[in-house]
Nucleic acid binder design. Structure first.
Lengths: 146, 146
DNA sequence: CAAGCACTTTACGTTAACGTCAACGTCGTC
DNA sequence: GACGACGTTGACGTTAACGTAAAGTGCTTG
């Protein structure tokens, strides 16, 4: 459970007209505080598909956004396989058939209930933390008074 | 990411005066939709410490609450080691020295920022889902019209 | 041109969190 | 008293998500 994420983005394809900014694997790795190994692994798992210049990988905005979404998904406890499933369906959307699209909507609904669940969990967990903290402060105060 | 959790509880020690309800490992496993193996594993990792009647494990309310908190923690992406750390410190609280208590408060603060992070992630993720769903419905509608 | 740096692939290693299987004990009951 | 349901302890297997090490490519900089 780390702590990194540059700026905000809107949709899954952060497609402002044509920012011709590209990134090397090292740059991207530093941006998100992961190792290049991790990024290559995500590619191997079908989560990224960067351009190639010869051997070397070239990452565009699209790839950066995908990586960001992937890491966010991970922090929320999704497996890479689950994340890939959504990404793949999203990519297949334009020419997706009705059955596929409906399947996508199902998955999305699923993720949604998952999010709701987590919200509830977080609220409950925050209460526990409140409770434990109160007691700890209490004991501390008593120690001070002696 | 499963879906189970019986009723609500207040503090880490759901200590209503004396509910003399106990549970077998199988009962507990069914309640929370985990396997007995999982529960034994949590014990081995120091997250549970049930009473023993001969060979057999006897679980009380306290154990049930711990298990619940453990599973909730897991859903929020905490490792078993992290969860144990909090539980251990909580147990050591009554006679904990100041240093330990302050360390506990630090950990709690840490978990808190973590929760905040997750809340933000969830909000962002929900927007992505909104976005993807909209587009999917859009494509579907177009397919219907043809 | 040698050194250094960033990149590449291949392949084996590692950790967490269980699953699975064997081999056994202990009830209640048919 | 055999059977089934439930419990027990090992011990080994498995999966996801990388880490790590080896060995090579390609640029550019002193």
């Amino acid at each position: 459970m780390s702590t990194a994420e540059p700026e905000a983005t809107t949709a899954i394809n952060g497609s402002l007209p044509q920012q011709r900014r590209t990134y090397s694997i090292g740059e991207l790795a530093r941006m998100f505080e992961v190792t290049p190994r991790t990024i290559r692994f995500y590619e191997q798992e079908g989560l990224l598909a960067p351009e190639r210049r010869g051997q070397t990988r070239i990452y565009h905005e699209k790839d950066r956004v995908r990586l960001k979404l992937t890491l966010r998904g991970k922090r929320l406890g999704f497996s890479l396989a689950e994340i890939r499933e959504v990404i793949e369906m999203y990519d297949a959307m334009p020419d997706g058939n009705a059955r596929q699209l409906k399947r996508l909507l199902e998955i999305l609904a699923d993720k949604r209930t998952n999010m709701e669940r987590q919200l509830e969990d977080i609220r409950l967990m925050q209460r526990e933390l409140d409770d434990v903290e109160m007691r700890a402060r209490d004991v501390l105060k008593r120690l001070d008074q002696q």
